[in-house]
Amino acid sequence: MLASLFAGIFYIAALIFVIGVGRKIIQYARTPAPLKIPTTPAPVTQTGVVLRMIREIVLFSSLFKANKWTWIFGWLFHFGLLLAFFRHLRYTMTPDALLWPLVSFDLVQSFGRYASFIMFIGLVGLLGRRFFVDRVRYISAPSDYLMLLLLLTIAGTGMLMSFVAHPDIIMLKEFVLGLLRFEVKPLPTDGLLLVHLSLVALLMVIFPISKLLHAPGLFFSPSRNQVDNPREKRHLASWAAKFDADQS
């Protein structure tokens, strides 16, 4: 019963996540950028743009220029999240899986465990800024605080399960592997685990309707992803081309 409920929740959440984010990505990709607006100095080649984007995605280079506190907390949180994500992949594959060597790698498993602390510190720092910096408090809506609380609770329950009260992790893995094969296997009735799982599902559901869209958004930001070559190459959006046609 419980297992079926959670299986249902996860299938629906995954569907909403994939379709919702997919639709936004299609929308961003289809909307033309009619003018060249890279924030300059900008790279003059496509390779340069790829490097600029990598610096933004991996190092948060613009944020680094802006504010060192926000940068360190934000970066710690995202880095911790990434490590934790990799660690969780082991629940989704058996040792004969292609990616298993990567996932079972000691570094991922041991660092992944402590990554939750990095993540937690980052989130607390970001929440603190929201409370204590008057400018950031002014621009914060309830949803901005709730988002951080949601992530903090996910990280917190994860830490408790990892370091204090271990759920039946073998059973959980069977459940997850079952989900991937569209079979409902039993789920441990562990309070912490159920909260953890429910909130992760909630996170997936709100992803496409919230500011979490910054993740796909960054890839489509014209001020970051355009090559600075307007004099060399004529840039013309489809809707703007009709003016040229009307004229001739």
């Binding site: 936004k24 929308q27 961003y28 909307t31 033309p32 950028a33 009619p34 607006i37 613009s62 944020l63 802006a66 504010n67 926000t70 934000g74 970001l126 800024r129 910096v133 400018r135 950031v136 621009i139 914060s140 809506a141 901005d144 500011k211 869209l213 910054h214 958004g217 960054l218 489509f220 930001s221 014209p222 001020s223 959006a237 809707w239």
Partner: peptide
């Protein structure tokens, strides 16, 4: 305008209210 300018659509969605710009 959201349909004609990718910048507008992406920028309206993407802000996380981090505050990096608040003193700029």
């Amino acid at each position: 305008l959201r349909g004609r300018y990718r910048s507008l659509q992406v920028y309206l969605d993407s802000c996380v209210k981090c505050g990096a710009c608040t003193d700029k």
